[in-house]
Amino acid sequence: MTEINKLVELLAQAYLAARGNVFTHLGIQLPLAAESLTMAIHNSIVGAHLENAGAQQGQADALLMLRHMVVNGTLTPLGALVVDQMYCAFCADVHQMLEEGKDPVVELASESKRRAMQ
Rank of each mutant, 00 (worst) to 15 (best):
E3H: 05
G54S: 07
V83W: 13
L81G: 05
I4F: 10
P104M: 03
M1A: 11
R114C: 00
G54A: 09
A18N: 14
A33E: 15
L32V: 15
Q56A: 15
G20H: 11
R115I: 08
M69Y: 08
A80E: 15
A48L: 10
L75T: 02
N52I: 02
L63W: 09
L11G: 05
A33H: 15
P77Q: 09
M39S: 09
E99R: 03
H42G: 03
V71M: 05
V83F: 12
N72R: 03
I28R: 14
H95R: 04
A48R: 13
Q59F: 04
T74H: 12
Q57I: 06
L64S: 15
L50C: 04
Q56E: 13
L81P: 00
Q85C: 07
I41E: 04
M65D: 13
S112R: 10
A62S: 10
L108K: 06
A48K: 10
L81K: 12
A48Q: 12
M65N: 08
E111D: 12
E51M: 14
K6G: 06
M65I: 01
L75E: 01
S36Q: 13
H25D: 14
Q29W: 03
Q29F: 08
C88F: 00
I45R: 01
E51S: 14
V82P: 00
T38V: 12
E3Y: 04
Q57C: 00
S112G: 06
